[in-house]
Nucleic acid binder design. Structure first.
Lengths: 239, 239
DNA sequence: ATTGATATTATCAATTTGATAATATCAAGT
DNA sequence: ACTTGATATTATCAAATTGATAATATCAAT
């Protein structure tokens, strides 16, 4: 055996306060769906997956786009930091938010050692006012130079979304109250990055949604029925 | 709008080095499979899912069992910390290791604010010597009082394992070089906490394994064929 | 040869998925 | 009123996957 006992002793004695501190930050990938404003057409604007970004006002990476974030304060949990950061950018309190991954490369921040605990948040953009931030199309972000390692964080966030969309109901946190099945399918397609067959999609999704008696109008084709997520229907429990 | 601009300004000015530091640690849930030593029988000992634990030598939680862990040093990434901690407990270099979740409750460590970035590692216990640590059956751990919030961390690790077992090949990092399908099924059953039908299990697993010409012996019943994981077979690429 | 035990293969029904076709409904143009 | 273009919705059938059970195989011990 070539175990190094000294190393073990060293570790036992190690007191982190003897060392220059490592700062802990939270960065949040906030996803939302935005409709590109329809121009001359009468049609609905195509929907797309958007991410909330902030233009940095200070160095490093001044004027570049970055994820909203902030440092973890001594008296708050990491989740609380995430919620606090969200509050500075939106007015919503009830936002779906889950931890994604912690990024700890040594030089990810040029100023000092900063470890970033990344989160994912999903919001309904129709209900959400944003401040000091902007929505950017996820496809456009791929060709954008972002601050820090935020491009990597976003890639991981997209992976998580892709991985979870088929066995959870998280998409619905991004959907408006009422939506058509085609709209929903369009979101699935941009997240999964592939086309789905409408008939099959309908089948699989049907257990998660409830029809309303409303329809889209003036479409130049058969109107489509509006649905709600079953998780949004208090009715579904009682009836 | 009731956005608080002052808060934003505060955050922009916030310099983490002004505050008492937050220490960052890594704790690792190392999974392995151990055979309970067969006693008077001639049969193979039942296999079980085990987790590597360390008996604490110092306060707090002196003499309690804890996950192996250590602090993140200024010059290493979090992944490197995890690998270093693993090396103090095992002799293996090539160990499957992935980040699990970061635990940041304020009082999870009574000494000071410590955030723990938890990892999962999977090892083949037959190849792995351990030092200053012991294997404990996952079922027994459920009724054991562990140090810190390590019981919570282990619960999350088990969830991750359960979630990933069906769409990845991670189990095989815990399996010995050669194994029977029943042994493999037993591991699946303890991880998923439910019985599986042998015929169906065989079918679904068959694409991931390759048969050898070896069989178990002296079993008092039909011998079972030994298989290898396809990912362990250089052959499978060439032939 | 029989029994008990587990491994392995076979079989068939039930369910889920993939793919395509058929039908419906609107606006706009003829 | 009828046709066209567009998308929504339902129907249909084949293909693949899964659930469940039965049949067969092979060993040690009796």
């Amino acid at each position: 055996m070539k175990f190094d006992t000294d190393e073990q002793e060293f570790l036992d004695k190690y007191d982190p306060s003897d060392y220059p501190s490592i700062a802990v930050a939270v960065d949040i990938v906030v996803f939302g769906i935005s409709k590109s404003t329809p121009k001359s057409y009468r049609r609905l604007g195509k929907q797309s997956l958007n991410i909330m970004l902030v233009k940095r006002k200070e160095y490093p990476f001044k004027d570049k786009l970055a994820l909203p974030g902030g440092f973890v304060l001594p008296e708050e949990t990491i989740d609380e930091t995430a919620k606090r950061v969200l509050k500075t950018k939106t007015e919503l309190n009830e936002i779906y938010c889950e931890q994604l991954y912690t990024f700890g490369d040594i030089n990810r921040d040029p100023r000092m050692r900063v470890i970033s605990c990344a989160y994912i948040a999903l919001v309904d953009t129709e209900k959400t006012q944003i401040k000091d931030a902007e929505w950017v199309d996820a496809d456009i972000i791929k060709n954008t130079d972002l601050a820090f390692d935020h491009a990597v964080i976003i890639m991981e966030a997209l992976k998580r979304l892709r991985g979870k969309i088929n066995y959870t109901d998280i998409v619905f946190y991004m959907m408006p109250e009422k939506f058509t099945i085609s709209q929903l399918q369009e979101i699935y397609e941009t997240i999964l990055q592939k086309k789905l067959l409408p008939a099959a999609f309908r089948r699989t999704i049907s257990g998660k949604i409830i029809q309303t008696e409303e329809f889209t109008q003036n479409a130049g084709h058969r109107p489509s029925r509006l649905y709600r997520w079953i998780g949004n229907c208090a009715d579904s429990v009682n009836k």
